[in-house]
Design a protein around this nucleic acid. Structure first.
Lengths: 171, 171
DNA sequence: CTTGAACCTCCAGTCGCTAGAGATTGTACG
DNA sequence: CGTACAATCTCTAGCGACTGGAGGTTCAAG
């Protein structure tokens, strides 16, 4: 009805033009009719559907989840419990991610707090990175028997990325 | 010295074999010497460097940041301020991400709270997704003049992904 | 010497876009 | 009506940080 070009649709929904074409390609937005010159022309139903998609993306839903939500929304008389479950699952993922990031935040803050802001040699940041055991929190699991908290104190030395060394076959 | 195969290195550092090869490819881990049969053999310095990399990745640092941290760690007598800055920048990113996710979390919770768990037709979840204006928080910016809070109440109907419609050129 | 696990290289796929090349179409103006 | 030029078209490749597979070789134990 409204007969919008892809650029107009983009402006109205705040979704970029290549993204709209991408959504069509992956089957999230139906292919619209075309002009004789094969340019896309959209109606108000496309505006609504694309708005739905954009909002769901803003809320962090994955494309697959959006696909399901869209197909659920097409059956208003059916129970909305499947939709609830999708949202709940996503909420749980967001909560897990927040918890992870909060751990990260506190470890990063500790690293900065502990750093005396002197030389790299005494820098707590570099030390903690070099030796996982020095950090205040455990954020990975340590399942197996303690792997010998070796007394590598002092200089942190790794093989340095030098020019292509001769690559002598050993042994 | 320790002369480890890539599988052994993988076990000791908890970094997967293809990931180790990938780190070599992108120049994060130096290419080790090879056996006559061109298999990689690693020493304890590689174990240390790869441990550094893994820990930094666990803390969410990007590869480019790790590259910088590694090259900083090679100069123990220099000031550690550049390292501090990298960590601080990353911390700020983490904090921004947390703030975003907390907004998301609260909006998702509201959606679930408001849903009467009946039919899709009255489902608050679907309604909020279909009409951005219904949500409790603003998480995008709304710069331009209000785009006509249209009275599309009731059925949420989009063009449905059907079979390939005839694609009649219009106009 | 044989077996088979581990290793090798190379390439493709993941996710959700984004950007570019090079060709065509739509539209406004003179 | 012609022309200019913005917008559109298709196609392909790239991002980041891996991960997986195919198909072939090497190592180490028995």
């Amino acid at each position: 009805m409204t007969d919008l070009s892809i650029g107009e649709l983009s402006r109205r929904t705040a979704v970029k033009v290549p993204t709209i074409r991408y959504y069509e390609q992956i089957g999230l937005l139906p292919a619209p009719p075309r002009t004789e010159g094969r340019q896309r022309r959209y109606g108000s139903d496309h505006v609504a559907r694309l708005g739905f998609i954009r909002h769901a993306r803003e809320l962090g839903f994955e494309v697959e989840a959006i696909r399901e939500l869209l197909s659920l929304s097409a059956a208003p008389e059916r129970p909305c419990e499947p939709a609830d479950r999708i949202v709940l699952r996503h909420l749980e993922g967001v909560e897990r991610r927040i918890a992870q990031l909060e751990l990260l935040r506190s470890e990063l803050r500790h690293m900065l707090d502990d750093c005396r802001h002197g030389q790299v040699g005494e820098c707590r940041i570099i030390q903690v990175l070099a030796d996982h055991d020095l950090c205040r929190h455990e954020h990975g699991r340590m399942e197996s028997g303690a792997p010998a908290r070796h007394a590598r104190r002092g200089s942190t030395r790794f093989p340095v990325m030098a020019g292509p060394d001769p690559a002598i076959p050993i042994r």
